[in-house]
Nucleic acid binder design. Structure first.
Lengths: 232, 232
DNA sequence: TCAAAAGTGTTCAGCGTACACCCATGT
DNA sequence: ACATGGGTGTACGCTGAACACTTTTGA
C-alpha cells in the first residue's frame, strides 16, 4: 500500500477462504468436497470455505476453517491464489483466497466431516463445483505436481510410516503417469532422507514391504549441503 | 465459499493491490519504487499500490494502478501472493494482493512516474521498504527466477528488438550469476523461438550485434509439439 | 594497429531412462 | 505349488558444463 493516512472513502469487501483439501487413499488422490445444503446451488458440491474475520490473519482463518471441518490442527497448508472477479460469486462481491491442504486421510475426523456434508472424491471423478472452484482445483493440482517434485511435501499425504510401493503410488497418482520401480527407489533412496524401519507392512502382499519414515533431520542436512530434493 | 445466502454479519475488509514492477536497464534488473510524501513513513520507499474498488475485479485494479503510474496498458502482470496479517499495515487492517509486472523501461512514462515520486532502484541496492513490502519483493524475485526459466516472459523486459548479449545479460541479472556465452546462445537458438533480423545494434560494440525478436508463433509451435521452453 | 565486444564447436562426465529376473510368503 | 507383490543392477544415450580462439570495426 502506497497511500497515506486516511483509508476512509475506499470500499471494503467480503474476503473469504476456500480450501482445496487433498488426501490419498486406496491408491488414489482425493479431494474433500462439501455438499451444499442450501440454495443457491443446493446439493451441488463446493470447496470448504468461510469468511475472514476482522481480527484474524488470513492464514489463521484458513487454519480455523480447516480445523472446523477435519478436526486437524497441524496440517500442511499453503496459500494458492486469490480470486477476485466481481461476479465470481453469484450472491455478492466476495474476494476469495484459495489455500490447498495436504492431509493424511487416516487422521481425518469422519464424524465432524459428515456434519458438514463432506465427501472424498477421487481427483479424476470430480463433480462440477460451484462458482470458480473447479478453476481453483486445477490450479492446486498444477501446484501440487510442481511442489512435490522439488519439496518433500508428498509425505504429508501418507501415514508417518509408509512403504516404498505406497510412496511410489502416491507420486504416480499426483503426476498421473506410471513410474519405473527401480528408478524411483534408486532416486529416493539416494537422497538419504528416509529411515528404513525393521518393520514390514503386510497389508498389501504376503511377503510384506519394509516401512520407512521421512527423516526431517536428514533432509535438513541434505539442504544445508547445498543439495536439493528432487523426485520424479 | 461454502456458505449460503446471507453474508451479512461477516466483516468486510480493505483490500489493496501492491505491485512489484521490474525493469531492465544498464545491464541491471531494477524495481520501480515510490517515495512516500506523507506520514507515516514519510520519505520512506514503498511499492506502488492502491485500493480495490467495489465494482472492479482484482486484476482490473492491478492494471489500473499500474497504468496510473507508468502510462502503460499492455503489460505483463501476474498475481503473486496475498498478504493478510492483521497488523501488517500500521494504519488499519488491510489485506493486500501483491502483483508483479515486467515492463520495458524504454516505454515507461518518466513524467507520470515523477508525479508519484517513482524511482528506479537496482535490485541489489534496494532501500528498506514499508510494512511487508521487502518480503513481497523477495517472493517476486523467486517467482521471476523460476518463471523466466520455463516461460518466455523475460522478453517483456526488453525492447521488441534485442541482441543476444543483451538477452544473456538479462538472464544473468535475474539469476544473479554469469552464464557461458556459447552454451547460452546454443540453447536459446536451438529452441527456434527467435527471429534474427538483418539489422545490427552497434550501441555497445564497434562490430555490432545482430538484433533478434521473440517470435510468438514459433513459440506456440514449439509448445504444440509437446516441447518446452527452458532456459538457463 | 589495437582494443573491445561478437561470434563460433567440441569434449566429457553424470544423469535420466529403459529394461527382466529372483525372492518371500500366505493360501 | 503357485500366485502376488517386493526387491535388485546395468548399459546407453542425451544433455548440461567446461573451455579458447577468431572476427569485425571504430577510434
Amino acid at each position: 500500500m502506497a497511500k497515506h493516512s486516511h483509508y476512509q472513502g475506499f470500499e471494503k469487501h467480503y474476503v473469504a477462504i476456500d480450501s482445496i483439501i487433498f488426501g490419498f487413499d486406496e491408491g488414489k488422490l482425493k479431494l474433500l468436497l462439501i455438499k451444499r445444503k442450501f440454495e443457491p446451488h443446493k446439493d451441488n458440491y463446493s470447496l470448504m470455505g468461510g469468511f475472514v474475520r476482522e481480527n484474524e490473519g488470513i492464514d489463521d482463518a484458513a487454519y480455523r476453517i480447516l480445523e472446523d471441518l477435519t478436526g486437524l490442527k497441524t496440517i500442511y497448508l499453503e496459500q494458492l491464489q486469490t480470486y477476485g472477479e466481481v461476479k465470481r460469486d453469484s450472491e455478492a462481491r466476495v474476494i476469495s483466497i484459495a489455500y490447498y491442504a495436504l492431509i493424511n486421510i487416516a487422521d481425518y475426523d469422519e464424524e465432524l466431516g459428515q456434519k458438514h456434508g463432506a465427501v472424498w472424491f477421487p481427483i479424476d471423478e470430480l463433480p462440477p463445483l460451484i462458482f470458480d472452484h473447479n478453476e481453483m482445483v486445477s490450479k492446486a493440482m498444477k501446484r501440487l505436481k510442481r511442489k512435490t517434485v522439488i519439496e518433500p511435501i508428498g509425505f504429508e499425504l501418507l501415514p508417518e510410516k509408509f512403504t516404498l510401493p505406497q510412496l511410489q503410488k502416491l507420486y504416480e497418482a499426483i503426476h498421473q503417469h506410471p513410474l519405473d520401480k527401480r528408478n524411483f527407489r534408486k532416486k529416493i533412496l539416494s537422497m538419504k532422507v528416509l529411515s528404513m524401519l525393521d518393520e514390514k507392512d503386510k497389508s498389501s502382499s504376503k511377503r510384506g514391504a519394509f516401512l520407512y519414515m521421512f527423516d526431517k533431520e536428514k533432509y535438513d542436512y541434505l539442504i544445508s549441503n547445498g543439495d536439493y530434493f528432487e523426485l520424479v
